[in-house]
Computed example of a mutant assay.
Amino acid sequence: MFDGLVRTFVPVAAGVLLTRVASYGLELPEAAVTDVLTVLVTAAYYALARLLERRAPRLGRALVSASLTSRTPVYTAGDGTP
């Protein structure tokens, strides 16, 4: 469970941080614009990190999990089968 949470929260935190940095000094019209930008940046970051994880596993894992875990989570059905 820890691995899945890490792999969710790290890209979200990176997306928020990247959006804040990219929009620093810009006068965005509404908070909703910032929210949409954050979602788009987060999705792009995650997609890029997952792509890199396939082509360069160490780099991709570092981007997806900040090297807090090296395992990819395995999700199982309710009866314990993968």
Rank of each mutant, 00 (worst) to 15 (best):
V10W: 02
Y45E: 09
S67D: 15
A49D: 07
L5N: 01
D79K: 02
L48T: 05
D35V: 11
V74Q: 13
A77S: 06
F9K: 00
T69L: 09
M1D: 05
V33Y: 14
A47F: 05
E30G: 04
L51H: 12
A56M: 10
V64S: 09
A43D: 05
D35Y: 10
D3G: 06
L51Y: 10
L18F: 15
R54M: 08
Y24T: 11
L18R: 07
L17I: 15
V74N: 08
R20M: 14
V41A: 13
T19N: 11
T34F: 11
A66C: 05
P29N: 01
R55Y: 12
P11F: 01
T34S: 09
T34R: 08
Y75T: 11
V12F: 14
R7F: 06
L28H: 07
S70H: 08
L18C: 12
R7H: 04
V16C: 03
R71E: 12
F9D: 02
D79W: 11
A66I: 02
P11D: 03
P57Q: 02
G25A: 01
A14L: 07
R61E: 12
A32H: 08
Y45H: 10
A31Q: 09
A32C: 05
G15M: 06
L18P: 08
G80Y: 10
G78T: 01
R7K: 14
L40G: 02
R54G: 14
P82G: 11
T69G: 07
M1Y: 11
E53S: 14
G15A: 08
G4D: 05
A47G: 06
F9E: 03
S65D: 04
Y46F: 13
R71P: 04
P29F: 11
L18N: 10
V39N: 03
V12C: 05
R20S: 14
L5S: 06
L40I: 06
G78V: 10
